[in-house]
Design a protein around this nucleic acid. Structure first.
Lengths: 227, 227
DNA sequence: GCCAAACTTGACACAAGTGTCAAAAATCAA
DNA sequence: TTGATTTTTGACACTTGTGTCAAGTTTGGC
């Protein structure tokens, strides 16, 4: 039942066994279906999503969805791996040589931008984790742990060289990750708190500013620290 | 379709229309079903949950679940309002007269403890928000906005009186909320990052410590500020 | 021990979802 | 224009889930 999610595949149609090469129509329809699927999965989760509903969102007959993506699991797998890929390319990355303030400011800003540009992806991912990541086990035993420990090393080295305070690097990473992720996953709640229907550009901007200010000062590398 | 979620009802069976008063058996069974439902909803979301699966988790025949809770929506409504109630009682609360450091330390610690003790509740709530809060609209237009603005006032007053830095209070609140919430919702991811199957007490403790340290220092009210 | 109320369950009717197939329609290269 | 290929769709068989009912069983007060 576990999807083998490959984090890097440029072509959406993975199994070339009997799949026809992508014509114009195919590409367009795949995109329409894919986007409808993202909406559906974000709103209902994997278990709650139905192919019928995806077909309706896409404006197609249900068997047509089966024609392009064999079944719900395959479609979901594509959506998931697309998310991981997006993530990889959009957030490359913090380097050990960077100055903490600049590096964190950039990272936080990019992560928040990502939350604004790809809220559905973020939410689908969150739903998957919340429900125990049943389709991501593979990924979690490999790529993620590596990504995580690379970040830890950077924070550790910053901490050892006195560039930042001695703070538990893992929890610091969780702090950065969760507070930025929040703006995608809990957008409804945030908008409601701010008395709006939906968040605007300036909200994301001031979020990034505030998070950067509080977190960098909180670990002892505020902007005015100089060098 | 929107559930009228009342944030305070001591008795689980709300509609006394034809419901029999709670005997011993009733109470016990309701609890078993309720807990099975929490597991199911946390894992599958509202749309994906099935009564059959809840019945199986509870070790009962499906019609028996219908006997105690009329249908899925009612059961979900009970679960949701139980969560809101838990929240209200467990996190009461920050007062405007408190010193920021102590108040925040207490709040963050309690919130993380809540994440440890009630991970399912937290996750169900998160799923509901992620999918657009279709069953919480009512709550969100009232109680939540009030809760939120009360917190804002406190932060604002701290900020005006120079007890903390001039930081956007809304985003500060989101920061605190999201980073603590994270330990319930993304437990799988966190455990995987830390190379464990499941989180231990000390993980929650060091989480609370780190968050408190970084956030309070980040807004200019570290413990050694004294008074 | 009796019996009314509370509880349990198999069976039913119905609704919704899945995946497949064959035939119709559209596309496009020669 | 034609005909092979790609795409679309109605129909089918099947599975899963829902809610109800009536007949059974258990429980507990007397």
């Amino acid at each position: 039942m576990i999807v083998e999610v490959s984090s890097h595949n440029t072509n959406i149609a993975t199994d070339d066994t009997q799949k026809k090469r992508a014509g114009r129509v195919r590409k367009k329809k795949e995109k329409i279906i894919f986007e409808a699927a993202e909406l559906e999965f974000a709103e209902k989760g994997f278990e709650g999503a139905t192919i019928d509903s995806i077909a309706k969102r896409a404006g197609l007959a249900r068997p047509n969805v089966h024609y392009y993506f064999d079944n719900k699991l395959k479609l979901y797998g594509e959506v998931l791996s697309n998310i991981l890929e997006l993530w990889d390319t959009a957030l490359n990355d913090i380097s050990i040589d960077d100055q903490p303030y600049e590096a964190l400011r950039t990272y936080i800003t990019r992560k928040i931008e990502f939350s604004r540009k790809h809220p559905l992806s973020s939410r689908i991912f969150a739903s998957e984790i919340i429900s125990g990541a049943p389709h991501l086990k593979a990924y979690y035993q490999e790529a993620y742990q590596e990504w995580f420990s690379r970040k830890l090393e950077i924070f550790d080295s910053w901490s050892r060289s006195g560039k930042i305070d001695k703070v538990d690097p893992a929890h610091l990473l969780f702090l950065i990750w969760s507070s930025t992720q929040h703006y995608a996953d809990f957008e409804v709640q945030i908008a409601s708190a701010l008395g709006k229907e939906t968040l605007e550009d300036k909200d994301y901007l001031s979020a990034a500013e505030t998070l950067t200010a509080v977190i960098t000062k909180g670990i002892g590398c505020p902007p005015d620290m100089g060098r």
